[in-house]
Amino acid sequence: MNRVIIAAAAAASLALLACEDGGATKNAAADVTSVQSAVRTAESQWLREWQARDLNRIVARYSPDAMVKFTPTGSMIGPDAIRTGIAPFLTDTNFQIQFAADEVRVGASGDLASTRGSYSIRYTNPATRQAETETGTYVTVWQRQTDGTWRVVEDITSGNPTAPPS
């Protein structure tokens, strides 16, 4: 099921990346290298904000209508739901996070980009009250704002199964 979600997210991000801005004609092709660098920089800073447990800065990286689907929390849409969903992780003494993009894809317009990579998160499972480490893959879709900054519009993780299916 998680593989289906990641495949659907990847397909959706590719469809978004293929679209032009409302059909508007662009004067020049996107500078792919500059966009990739800007998105990698934004994602690296975002990781530092997660590791610093800075809830306000983490949430500020999301667009107002962002959709987030994390394996342990389910789907969250908008800043209030995202804040509520991730806040418990940041106060968890076992919380640790690492993520890194393996690939950055840039849309033709240069206004959308997606990152795909792997992550590891350690947290206390509320049901068992035991520390757990989840690893998996993610797809994040970034959108350039009018001020030139990049915000996350879609953020989807897919945890690796802990045991092979029987």
Rank of each mutant, 00 (worst) to 15 (best):
G85F: 05
N160G: 01
R3T: 13
A131Y: 03
N125K: 09
F95E: 02
T137V: 07
A30G: 10
V152Y: 00
G117C: 09
A38Y: 06
T41D: 10
V59G: 05
V35D: 12
Q45I: 03
S114D: 14
A100W: 04
G136H: 03
F89Y: 10
A42F: 03
A113P: 05
R122N: 05
T157E: 09
A113Y: 08
D21Q: 11
T84I: 01
Q130I: 04
G159W: 04
S166T: 06
D31M: 04
S63P: 03
Q96N: 12
N2W: 08
D92A: 13
G107Y: 04
Q36A: 13
T137Q: 12
G78V: 06
Y138M: 07
I5K: 15
S63E: 12
W46S: 00
I121N: 05
D31S: 09
L17T: 02
D102P: 02
E154K: 06
E154V: 10
T140H: 01
A42Y: 03
S118R: 15
A108D: 08
G148M: 10
T133Q: 14
R129K: 15
T157N: 06
P72Q: 09
E132H: 05
C19S: 14
P79S: 14
G107C: 05
T149L: 02
L112F: 13
I121F: 01
C19F: 08
T25A: 15
G85R: 07
Q36F: 03
P64D: 14
S34T: 14
N2S: 12
Q130V: 07
L47D: 00
A7G: 10
R83K: 15
V35K: 11
G22D: 13
E134K: 06
T71M: 10
R53E: 04
Y62S: 00
Y138E: 09
P72A: 07
T84W: 06
I77H: 05
D111Q: 14
A7V: 03
A101N: 14
L14H: 13
L112N: 10
R144F: 04
D102I: 11
L90T: 08
V153N: 02
Q145Y: 03
S44W: 01
S13M: 09
D80R: 08
R129I: 01
V32W: 04
F95T: 05
I6S: 11
T128I: 02
T93Q: 07
R40G: 07
V139P: 08
G74Q: 10
P165N: 05
A28I: 12
T133R: 11
N160F: 09
L47G: 00
L112S: 10
T33Y: 02
K26L: 11
P165R: 08
I97G: 01
P79R: 14
R61V: 00
Q145T: 02
W46C: 00
A9D: 07
A10Y: 01
R151W: 00
N125I: 10
Y62W: 06
N160R: 09
L112Q: 06
V106C: 12
I156V: 15
I86V: 15
P72N: 08
S37R: 15
A60N: 12
